[in-house]
Nucleic acid binder design. Structure first.
Length: 576
DNA sequence: GCACCGCAGA
């Protein structure tokens, strides 16, 4: 019986080969209607499902001798339900090609999938089919259409569908409401909210999170306190509001007082601590979480990666793969892991992830691709990075910035500039990260004047250079021998220069054997990073170059006393 | 079944 087999599958994560043995007889015998019905119940009642079951369902659909519209519709619904929107929609397209009549499930699920994928054309065509197949009177389908436009940010169309609906339920109202909130039209949202004849907890939650999102916590709390009924999402919305305002103490007090917590509450707090750089508090919470699921690991791994602790990120990743935990990573996990590899320059692990993805059927999405572009470019494989870049579905700011800085670190200034121009032509506005990549390109090519022009042009775009940008400029000027100018630039900085900035000047002084400025730079480096001995060695080399052997020797002794030897080939950029 | 709260890329 299929049911037993499926139950078995759910309990044991089977390999593809084991699956093949099971599914072959089913295909030859066909599925009885009863089996199909039971299989649906099992599959929809489970929140845990493996990629194997997903592949299994697809195989059944493609191997059936007589295409079955209700089974295909079920497939669309299944994948949409489990967040596999791409698969859901492609199954819908295939069932249309087979000439099968879509059910209301298939229509609403594929609309949901298009909305989540921000696939406008797909959604429009499904909307057309809603007309064609006469689902204009179905509340569910019409609400899905309305929700599609609402999620796409097209409130005019959403409103039109809503106004023409013969029948509305609370979900239809909530859908319009969330559309206005998403487009930050709080006024219209408030109007809709006041009009809802049967407000439920979702309506209230939407309003609370709408106000929280725009930073109006007073109004959010006011509504929260007036709520006739609260659920977990209500509490979580308030936490998330405080988190995005950076008020971790208030977020924590809500978290501590809420009656029940779920994974969302924990993950919101962990990522909140991550965003304000409090890795220790994030980890403390993570450790207190008894039932750690994939998303908790994702949040914690991302926390390490974003706070420059890539080693810890990889360690946690390895832990989740261990047999006693055994949680399958998804695209988001791997994205953070690849970024960690990039920070470490750990190309081999990136290649391992590539093969892991192939083995487990994980598709390369744009987030993953951008992380890979960065990794390959940083490790010198610029051609592979470029190939990935050209293959992107949507080239956005992040993608361009990754590729530009990839060219930058590989000394390909001309390509970086060309890409920058292409980006501007595509109406994508550069930000601080883009300029960091571009300045790196000028720096590696030694183009001082062009680099300066680029640096100055940032202000015209309303961008204030960060200490990192100053650091690159100091490096550029310094290497060109314009040490005084570099020093003046540091003095003109509106913020505290970090060790990387002074380190760049110190290195330049070493190259050009300038003792006076070298001493100033070194003094600042010692102050900012007393534990790092590389600065002493550099200054010692400067003294040696002008034959001040006593001073050079004194510094070398300091290095040895610290019990640390100079790490050979240590580069400046790593510390910045 | 459709709606509210959480995790990823330069």
């Amino acid at each position: 019986m299929l049911v037993q087999k499926l139950t078995f599958l759910l309990k044991n994560s089977l390999t593809i080969d084991q699956l093949k043995q099971i599914h072959t007889p089913i295909i030859t015998n066909g599925l009885s209607q009863l089996e199909t019905l039971l299989a649906r119940q099992i599959l929809l009642s489970t929140s845990r499902y493996s990629r194997h079951i997903a592949q299994y369902i697809q195989r059944i659909l493609h191997h059936l001798q007589n295409p079955d519209a209700s089974l295909w519709s079920f497939g669309v619904r299944f994948f949409s339900f489990h967040g596999q929107f791409n698969t859901a929609f492609s199954l819908y397209v295939q069932m249309r090609r087979l000439g099968l009549f879509p059910s209301s499930f298939a229509l609403s699920s594929s609309l949901k999938s298009c909305a989540r994928m921000v696939h406008g054309v797909g959604g429009f065509s499904v909307h057309a089919q809603v007309f064609k197949y006469g689902f204009c009177g179905s509340v569910y389908v019409q609400t899905a259409v309305l929700d599609f436009y609402s999620k796409m940010g097209d409130m005019r169309s959403a409103r039109k569908v809503f106004d023409e609906m013969p029948e509305r339920n609370v979900v239809s109202w909530n859908s319009v409401l969330s559309g206005y909130l998403k487009s930050r039209n709080l006024e219209e949202a408030q109007r809709v909210f006041d009009e809802i004849p049967m407000k439920d907890v979702v309506s209230w939650n939407s309003m609370v999170s709408g106000y929280a999102r725009i930073g109006n916590m007073d109004q959010a709390i006011c509504l929260f306190e007036r709520m006739p009924e609260r659920n977990l999402a209500s509490w979580n919305a308030v936490i998330s509001g405080y988190v995005s305002c950076g008020s971790m103490e208030l977020a924590r007090s809500i978290f501590d007082t809420m009656p029940v917590r779920n994974n969302v509450s924990w993950i919101t707090m962990i990522s909140g601590y991550s965003k304000c750089g409090d890795v220790v508090s994030a980890r403390l919470l993570f450790d207190q979480l008894t039932d750690k699921e994939l998303l908790a690991f994702n949040a914690m791994i991302a926390c390490y990666e974003q706070n420059s602790q890539p080693g810890e990120a990889l360690e946690l990743f390895n832990q989740m793969l261990e047999p006693d935990i055994n949680i399958q990573p998804d695209e988001m996990t791997l994205t953070s892991v690849i970024s960690s590899c990039s920070l470490l320059g750990y190309l081999e692990f990136g290649l391992w992830i590539e093969s892991y993805m192939k083995k487990h059927g994980i598709q390369l999405d744009d987030h993953l691709a951008n992380a890979f572009i960065d990794l390959y470019a940083k490790c010198g494989n610029i051609d592979k990075a470029y190939k990935l870049f050209r293959g992107l579905r949507k080239k956005d700011l992040v993608a361009y910035s990754a590729m530009i800085s990839g060219y930058g670190v590989n000394g390909k200034a001309v390509d970086a500039i060309k890409l920058f121009e292409e980006m501007v032509d595509a109406d994508i506005y550069p930000n601080l990260v883009t300029f960091k990549g571009l300045l790196t390109a000028y720096n590696h090519a030694g183009l001082v004047e062009e680099g300066y022009k680029c640096f100055d042009s940032m202000k015209d775009q309303g961008l204030l250079p960060s200490a990192d940008h100053y650091g690159i400029m100091v490096d550029l000027l310094g290497r060109a021998g314009r040490l005084e100018e570099a020093h003046e630039l540091i003095k003109s900085m509106p913020m505290q220069p970090h060790a990387g900035v002074w380190g760049a000047l110190l290195l330049a002084c070493r190259i050009h054997n300038n003792v006076d400025l070298g001493e100033i730079a070194a003094r600042n480096c010692f102050k900012l990073q007393p534990e790092k001995t590389g600065y002493s060695s550099l200054l010692a080399n400067i003294y040696a170059s002008v034959e001040r052997w006593d001073d050079a020797g004194r510094l070398r002794n300091v290095v040895e006393e610290k019990g640390l030897s100079k790490i050979p080939g240590c580069s400046w950029t790593e510390s910045s």
